[in-house]
Design a protein around this nucleic acid. Structure first.
Lengths: 236, 236
DNA sequence: CGCCGTTTTGACGTATCTCAAAGAAGGTGG
DNA sequence: CCACCTTCTTTGAGATACGTCAAAACGGCG
């Protein structure tokens, strides 16, 4: 219990992750579990409590629909908290790894109990959830009111900003292991159309998405066509 | 300060709102402010902290895009907490009333301070945010992976469930003051297409949306075409 | 080298949007 | 109680962004 409290207390809901030593595997005795690429960490509809904190690697949180389609809800990155629901009940989404993935897992019930006595915890969880809210709202605007170009541009900029905040992107270039199929399930499009859209973005000298890397070519123009404002990603 | 604490402590993140006396205007000294229909309670990009708790009436939380379009993020209903961000900075969305609206307003800073010393508060806020997350995720599936019919059906069922939980819907019938334009901005469609979709839903004897009221006609078929599962709306 | 997942391209189909205008419906003032 | 105005709903005809289907090219990997 002491371990859990100390662990979460030190959790950098605040983007200083890359600067402090939090990334150490045995931090305060909490050990991360490692998953192979393309494995399922936790499955939609399963009844297990437990929330995850990403230590390293790429993951997707998605929900499958009856007709076989799926929507990717979020791509949790280093430091992100995943799966908190606050009530008992089945999981609403599945969590899967894209790359090799290291995650800390802690019991939701324990965390809730801890929140009651540890104000700092409650505040951190609340702030983390509020930020996720903002991200989801922005994804909603993407699928609801932005066309393929703006939408794709916006998401690539979001990734860049989020990765920068945890030290995983610099100079407009970052590693991105997502396939165009996955991109499609994030953006609410088909893989074919994602492909054509990426080509256009490339031809317009805005961004390139190629062989696992994203490179922002003309940031000013890209930000403008996306209508991107990073404010919603701020932690504090 | 005592007022704030007591007020939030009694806040029914739990759907028992209609059963207890929380709805009284002068509950624990906290007084709701009343807004006329179609007034703006708080504006996107403004720098004011302050979160709202809906006492009665309909509201929309929306974000306007550079090109003049807008996406409605949520329709906060009785008991819902709106606008918590956890960090200083401009508001990410505007809050406007549809009907006459009564809302409690409390300072975000005060609330954060209170969370630190009052575990119950932190837990409540966290649970409330987690539920909002689930709702946003479902809206994302709507716009991303469900066609006009499923999407519209799903949202009307969501409203019914949410309203039922706070005593504002019964027997599949509820008041809904949204115009088709607003519905369009919620669902990421045009008003014209919303109209045609509603007609189809009506012709298929699934739901009717008419003159301010929604009536579920054939729940079983409606739930099936929407792929609706109310689990994500549960508070506890 | 051959395999399998991914990317790319082409031709064609359609759900949804756009534009435009005609009804309803509700509210206001005379 | 009627005339008027505004907002909302409804309908039609035509346009298009995006989806579907299918196949070829590419690329990493055993």
């Amino acid at each position: 219990m002491q371990t859990l409290l100390e662990f979460m207390r030190s959790h950098p809901v605040g983007g200083t992750l890359s600067k402090n030593g939090w990334g150490n595997n045995d931090f305060f005795g909490a050990t991360a579990k490692i998953y192979k690429p393309h494995s399922v960490i936790s499955r939609q509809d399963d009844h297990n409590d437990g929330i995850f904190v990403v230590k390293s690697g790429w993951a997707i949180l998605y929900h499958g629909l009856p007709d076989g389609e799926r929507q990717i809800i979020d791509t949790p990155l280093r430091g992100d908290i995943v799966g908190f629901r606050g009530v008992d009940g089945p999981r609403l989404a599945s969590l899967a790894s894209i790359t090799e993935l290291a995650v800390y897992e802690i019991s939701s019930k324990e965390l809730l109990k801890a929140i009651l006595s540890q104000g700092h915890l409650g505040k951190k969880i609340a702030c983390s959830l509020a930020r996720l809210n903002a991200i989801l709202a922005e994804h909603l605007m993407n699928t609801g009111r932005r066309n393929a170009m703006r939408r794709t541009a916006h998401f690539l900029l979001e990734l860049e900003e989020r990765l920068s905040m945890v030290g995983l992107s610099a100079h407009g270039r970052y590693e991105c292991p997502l396939t165009q199929y996955e991109l499609a399930d994030i953006l609410g499009m088909t893989a074919v159309h994602v492909n054509r859209t990426l080509r256009e973005l490339r031809k317009a000298d805005l961004v390139s998405f190629k062989s696992g890397y994203v490179e922002v070519i003309n940031r000013k123009k890209l930000v403008e066509t996306a209508g991107f404002d990073s404010e919603y990603l701020r932690y504090r």
